[in-house]
């Protein structure tokens, strides 16, 4: 689904990614691990062009989204992202956080959609809003936070914030969700609830790319694990062979420190 071809990224003279190529298939749960500063977060952020790649291609739905001539916003709607610091919209309540993007972005497309005779979704902005609201409430129920719909992000715990952030990503009905260390900023007692939700998503068949330090989670949920070292994929494989029989010395060294 996402083809990454020879991806390079430099910040000034500092080359962070030194040629990464991989393919993320539909339904895959790709876990990316590596030491801090290895470029794993940068790689993830390049996948939806939050960082513009210096060179290389990222093919998504038949288009190279690394090309600046492509409408990246349209593609980002289909690539959800969950951040380490949650980044909920502080000026919106939980419900609005979830429904803002589907409603605002959907409203723009309404006129074009209405011309399509086979289209049988909401036809007016009002209907669209009601539909988005209903969907948002359903998602909040799904992440167990429907009673917090009217609350503001500042009143939520870290775990609750991250669950709302996941609901917000799901509201766009994405093809893939990118998780950038989703549990690293959480208090230990809240890590479980977020990982549990991610596991459920994985079981439902969502394509996920996850940067994490949770090795247990990587082993349990991942279908493929990538080890990034010094801006390159140093080793990849299924969790069994990856953790059971690591070959690359850098990975062995890394695993001995974190396991």
């Amino acid at each position: 689904m996402i083809d990454v071809i020879n991806l390079h990224k430099s910040f000034g003279k500092n080359e962070v990614l030194k040629g990464i190529s991989t393919t993320i298939e539909e339904g895959e749960k790709v876990v990316i691990i590596g030491a801090s500063g290895s470029g794993k977060s940068t790689f993830l952020r390049c996948l939806n062009c939050m960082e513009d790649p210096t060179s290389g291609s990222i093919m998504f739905e038949g288009e190279d989204i690394a090309n600046i001539h492509v409408d990246i916003n349209r593609h980002r709607e289909k690539i959800g992202m969950v951040f380490q610091q949650f980044n909920l919209f502080n000026n919106k309540n939980v419900l609005d956080n979830v429904m803002l993007a589907p409603y605002s972005l959907g409203k723009k497309k309404l006129r074009a959609l209405k011309k399509d005779p086979s289209y049988n979704g909401p036809k007016t902005a009002k209907e669209l809003k009601a539909a988005c609201r209903e969907n948002a409430l359903k998602l909040l129920k799904r992440v167990g936070l429907e009673e917090k719909a009217e609350a503001y992000p500042s009143t939520l715990s870290g775990g609750q914030k991250q669950r709302v952030a996941i609901a917000r990503a799901l509201a766009m009905n994405p093809k893939v969700i990118l998780f950038d260390e989703p549990t690293s900023a959480l208090d230990p007692e809240m890590v479980g609830e977020v990982l549990e939700l991610m596991k459920e998503l994985a079981n439902e068949g969502m394509t996920m790319v996850i940067v994490t330090h949770e090795m247990g989670f990587a082993r349990e949920v991942g279908t493929r694990v990538l080890f990034i070292d010094d801006g390159k994929i140093a080793e990849e494989g299924t969790p069994e062979e990856f953790f059971g029989n690591p070959k690359c010395p850098a990975l062995k060294d890394f695993l001995s420190k974190v396991l």
Partner: peptide, 27 residues
């Protein structure tokens, strides 16, 4: 305003100007 706010808005598909108007400027 925390840079993550703009990032989150861009990540769900808002353009730069829409992100600024809807999320960053009100804050």
């Amino acid at each position: 305003v925390d840079g993550g706010q703009l990032e989150a808005a861009r990540a769900v598909g808002f353009s730069y100007s829409a992100s600024m108007l809807k999320i960053v400027v009100p804050q």
